[in-house]
């Protein structure tokens, strides 16, 4: 069984909610990412999402855009991101790692080459923001054959038939986008999230994690009442904007993640 399903099943059995954290690979520096991944796990993250930086991250708000720009400024790439995952796996074989990014770097590397490299590095799943299921048949086939999960976004604007179409190919977990907007936006509406999750659960058994707009223990708890887990991204990436030593950034990140973890475990 893939690490993602294993982790989420175990959490469900324990009656706990999943906490997924997002960092941009190579932000604020390439050396930072590997120790940051370990620090996030130690603070209570269950799934690590690693953003693959792209020159044109269309779905990101200003905070994560700047993270992509910082990472690209010192030449972070899909290749160097896979290398970080490989190094992470040297000491951590249980925490799932999901790559989240845009289609073009994967297309440029070549689908088959990417899938082989991802398996070899120890990646567990891929979420490609701008590759909807109808354009992803070839890549999804290769990913499935290799045992990698295909994570999909579902949006508040997704119609019921669209939800069915996506859940037919979604595996690992479904990532529900809590609001209309880019990453890091505000205004969470828990009731509308609950309504949509009910629709999603009619067509899939796969756990549903909710992201976009979750920034602290309170917002995480509110959403986790109705979801299987939450994704925290911009609230972590914004920390990278402070010109602090890495040790202080690790401490800031760990404090926030541990706080959210406690909040989720209090449910």
């Amino acid at each position: 069984m893939n690490r993602i399903s294993q982790t989420l099943t175990q959490l469900q059995n324990e009656g706990r909610k999943a906490l997924a954290t997002y960092l941009v690979s190579g932000d604020p520096s390439q050396d930072f990412t590997l120790p940051a991944m370990h620090a996030l796990v130690a603070a209570g993250a269950n799934i690590l999402e690693l953003g693959v930086p792209f020159s044109d991250p269309m779905a990101e708000g200003p905070v994560i855009q700047r993270g992509h720009e910082r990472a690209l400024a010192h030449h972070t790439s899909l290749t160097s991101t896979l290398e970080v995952v490989r190094q992470f796996r040297a000491t951590n074989t249980h925490t799932p790692v999901v790559l989240m990014g845009y289609a073009n770097p994967v297309e440029r590397m070549g689908f088959a080459k990417f899938v082989n490299a991802a398996v070899e590095a120890g990646v567990d799943g891929l979420l490609t923001v701008d590759l909807p299921p109808e354009e992803a048949e070839t890549l999804n086939g290769l990913l499935a054959d290799a045992g990698l999960e295909t994570i999909y976004l579902i949006a508040p604007t997704s119609s019921d038939s669209r939800v069915e179409q996506i859940t037919r190919v979604a595996s690992g977990f479904v990532y529900y986008v809590s609001l209309k907007g880019v990453t890091g936006a505000g205004h969470l509406d828990v009731q509308s999230v609950a309504d949509k999750l009910a629709i999603i659960r009619r067509s899939t058994q796969v756990p549903v994690l909710v992201g976009f707009g979750i920034k602290d223990a309170d917002s995480a708890k509110a959403i986790a009442h109705v979801a299987d887990g939450v994704v925290v991204g911009s609230a972590l990436v914004v920390m990278m904007e402070a010109s602090k030593p890495a040790t202080e950034l690790f401490a800031d990140m760990s404090t926030l993640v541990a706080d959210i973890r406690r909040g989720l475990d209090s449910l």
Partner: peptide, 20 residues
């Protein structure tokens, strides 16, 4: 029907925009 000109074109956007 899906917006392709041979291998080009298509619809590569985030899910929120599909309905629009």
């Amino acid at each position: 029907a899906r917006g392709h000109f041979g291998p080009y074109g298509g619809r590569f956007v985030s899910e929120t925009l599909i309905y629009a």
